[in-house]
Amino acid sequence: MTLQEIEQVVFAEIGRVGTAKELEEIQHTYLGRKGHLTGILRGLSELSLEEKRDVGEKSNVLRGRIETALKDRLGELKEKQEERFFDITFPGKKVVVGHLNPLTLILKEIEDIFISFGFSVVEGPEVETEFNNFDALNIPANHPAREMWDTFWLKRGNQKSERLLLRTHTSPVQIRYMLTHEPPFRIIVPGTTYRYEATDARHEMQFTQVEGLVVGEDVTLANFKAVIEAFFIRLFAQKVEIRLRPGYFPFVEPGVEVDATCPRCKKKGCELCKFSGWLELGGAGMVHPNVFDAVKYNPKNVQGFAFGIGAERFAMIKYGIPDIRLFRSGDLRFIRQF
């Protein structure tokens, strides 16, 4: 057969076959060791140099086309075989993945927002000295304000050594940080804290706080308002209004309570905000000069704000968790939902 003859019949033949075996036969007939096209290539030696080049090239092109046509046809035949009943509604195979505790999820969100504001994340120990947890924060011994923090105290063999406790807030890290760093800085301190109190759906003896501290020459309360506003808007992914009210925390002056408009009902009033339209979200204020004194900063040269928010509370609001005790319940039926 000549090249033209092969070209005229082979593609039609390929189009007609119905099985893979027939395709193999065609391959054998044309491209096999004794095949038609192979024969033409073998006969090249008898041709002139010019003809050799011409026929050789054409044969190779044709060989390529035949190979492609064979593969395409084989693919078509295989696809046809797949055209039987197939139930796409059969359940997907379960992939086993673990779940992060919603506390971890909310902390990551909170931390990432503050990191994007240029804050550093700083941590500190959960076992603290009485000095760092209270005295240095302008809460001297016997001050009635100490009653605001019901405290777990640790047993020590030697009565004379300094009393240790489980920190009642992450604020002592303010002291640790300022004693070892110079302003200006902006930090947040996430961490576990403890209160000696009865637990219920809204109260825990162990919970997670995120403390913020920004100190510089001219950091103002108005700056705090901007930071906390931007934070809430990012966290709730919607416009929220901020409201500051007078509050009392001995380590700040002025001290404020921070409320935000309820992100669930948008100020209309719902169960979550107890129909007030507002949620209490934390405490804050301008760092008390006595705190700067305690860390050997000169209160005449520096000022700043501090704030504290509860991580569980945000997780409860964002993820609709009704009971704060669920976070540490260890219940997989809870954790596997996140």
Binding site: I115, G118, S120, E123, R186, T220, A222, K225
Partner: peptide
């Protein structure tokens, strides 16, 4: 009234941020 207090952005970028 705290309600009259306007928010003011902390302007300068903090260059002290570092990876923890």
């Amino acid at each position: 009234g705290y309600d009259t207090l306007k928010s003011k952005t902390l302007s300068r970028v903090s260059l002290h941020a570092r990876r923890d």
